[in-house]
Structures are given as structure tokens and as C-alpha cells.
Nucleic acid binder design. Structure first.
Ligand code: ZN
Ligand code: ZN
Ligand code: ZN
Ligand code: ZN
Lengths: 151, 151
DNA sequence: TAGTGTCTTGATATTTTATAACTTTAAGGG
DNA sequence: CCCTTAAAGTTATAAAATATCAAGACACTA
């Protein structure tokens, strides 16, 4: 992840989510907002139980369903993606357009880059069709070393 | 999965594994053989605990590490792939050449088709490079409906 | 404003998936 | 046969996710 103002980064994500929910008439409750914020605070994949720990700081410990339900909502709305190979979650870089995320994962620094490339989607859909399958969705998670870490 | 003689299917997988291990001087023990057989018996992804149950039939119940260690070996040797999105395991369709598996998963019948297409690998590697990442490995799991189930 | 239905969150318990750590057994080389 | 190492057994626990029921918040309307 290149240098950036991360506070602004978080703020943008929260504002975008707020607006999208208003437009869709879905409820961006304080809890959901807080969980989305926590997903963004760490600019890396975060696990449900890490979120749970952060959420519990300075108050009665929350239970797992609280976190999982909020994550379900955020994923459903397209604000968060799940990284299957890491049992973790990341904020979506393009929440305005619901989509399936395709990811690059750095095995050194754990940073994740989301690829929003139509051509990649097209190739994957074509592969499904070529093998006689209809296409519903796909997960693509590429492990490698990011540019920063190679220098 | 099209009609086929599944007993033969299993037998082929076991024979191939046996020969590859002999060539590599790795140990294809009775337990590992049995676990590989169980992975193949169900021509669908199978979970570690399903294997555990089958393995325990008619004898003292085996413990999880027994299964997970056998699976680790089989994956390492390239005889089995893990399906991340299902926490499950499938036999590899081309064990002679170690590789990363790319899969089509039918959401109706749960059948899985392994794609061994170089062009797909090339596109994925190119996507990594285009985003500044080196390539180590990748998982691609496409969900859809197979040809059989659509008819 | 009280009643009603729906969505959200809280709370408790349990299930599912996976690994750590240590012991015992088996295999292979001299 | 002795020694070393790899494999399998054993016990316990960690990590990830879900089921179920209760309580609260909210909006609609009667
Ligand atoms: Zn996204
Ligand atoms: Zn990196
Ligand atoms: Zn394969
Ligand atoms: Zn099918």
C-alpha cells in the first residue's frame, strides 16, 4: 500500500457507505458503521475475532454473532470482501458498484490489493462457459510479493 | 461429472500416487493411501471431519491430527487440492504435474471440475505482474451450475 | 398513543475446523 | 542389532462460525 492519508481513507469509506445505504434504504446502524470503521483501520485483512476484540475495548465484551452479523450486512451491501484463504475481511475499494473481489495478497507485508479489472472477470467467465458451467461468482486470490517489499 | 467407472477412477488415482511417491522416494503409507482413497470415494469435495468419520468406522476413533497430517502430505505431493471456499478437499485430476488447482464448483450438485488450463494461469500471472506483484500461487474457485444440472 | 409487525442487537451455548505439544511406534541405514 | 528419523497416536486446546431464543428499537397505523 503506497503512502496515503489513512484517516481520510477511512472517512471516505464511511461516508460512501452512509450515502449508499441512504440511497438503497438500508440501515447503516452505529454498530455496522463501527465494524466497517474497524475493517478499514487496519489497512490489511482483519479477522472477525480481531474486530471482536477491538469492538470490546472499554466495554462489555461483545459476542461473535454481533460481529458476524454486521459483517454479513457489510458484505451483502458490497462494502467489505471476505478473503477466503485468510479467513479475513477487507474493505472494498469500489463500494459504489457491487462486485466480486479479486485480490493480490503480499506474503511479506500482508497488504492486499483489490483488482477491479473487467478483462480478468471476462476471462474467468469465459473459462466457466468453456467448461460447461454457468457463472455465478468467483474468488481469485493471488499470493505474491508486492512492489514495496521487493525493494 | 459425466458418467464413468468410479472404481477405476479411484484405482487410477491410487496407482498414480503410489508410482509418483516411489519415484520421489516419499512414503505412501497405508494411512495416506487410505485417506487419498476416501478423498476419491466421494466424487465431490469432502471435509476433513467427514474423512475422519469414514476412517473411524469399525475401529477406534482416530483423532483430527491423523487426518490433517495425511492431508498435508497429500496436498504437498499434489495429490489433493484444498477448496478454500468450502473448507474441503478434492483429488487432483493431474497428480503427475504439481500445480495450483483452479476450480469450477456446481452450486446445485456440488461437483467440482478442475481446470488445468495454461492460458488461465498465464492471465492470472500477468494480472499479478501488471499490479506490481511477483507471483507465488493463486486460488481460483468459480461457483456456477454445471451442464448436467442445467438440463 | 397504544398496538403490531419487522428488523436489529444481546446473550448463551454449541458446532465446525484446525493446530500444539508430547508420546509411542515403525522404518531404514549402518 | 542399534541408532536416527519419520510417521502415527494421544490429549488438549485454539480458532472460526453458527443456532437459538430473548430483548430492544423502530415504523406504521388504527
Ligand atoms: Zn471490491
Ligand atoms: Zn508487501
Ligand atoms: Zn490438480
Ligand atoms: Zn451440478
Amino acid at each position: 500500500m503506497l503512502k496515503h492519508n489513512h484517516d481520510e481513507c477511512i472517512e471516505n469509506a464511511l461516508t460512501a457507505a452512509q450515502e449508499i445505504c441512504a440511497a438503497r434504504d438500508t440501515r447503516f446502524t452505529p454498530l455496522r458503521r463501527r465494524v466497517l470503521e474497524l475493517v478499514w483501520v487496519k489497512h490489511e485483512p482483519i479477522t472477525a475475532y480481531e474486530i471482536l476484540d477491538l469492538l470490546s475495548e472499554g466495554q462489555k465484551r461483545v459476542a461473535p454473532p454481533t460481529v458476524y452479523r454486521a459483517l454479513d450486512f457489510l458484505i451483502e451491501e458490497g462494502f467489505v470482501h471476505r478473503i477466503e484463504s485468510l479467513n479475513s475481511f477487507v474493505g472494498c475499494s469500489d463500494p459504489a458498484h457491487k462486485h466480486q473481489g479479486h485480490f493480490l495478497i503480499c506474503t511479506k507485508c500482508s497488504n492486499v490489493t483489490e483488482m477491479n479489472e473487467q478483462s480478468l472477470h471476462d476471462v474467468i467467465k469465459a473459462a466457466a462457459k468453456a467448461n460447461g458451467y454457468s457463472y455465478e461468482n468467483s474468488i481469485l486470490e493471488i499470493a505474491g510479493i508486492c512492489e514495496n517489499c521487493r525493494n
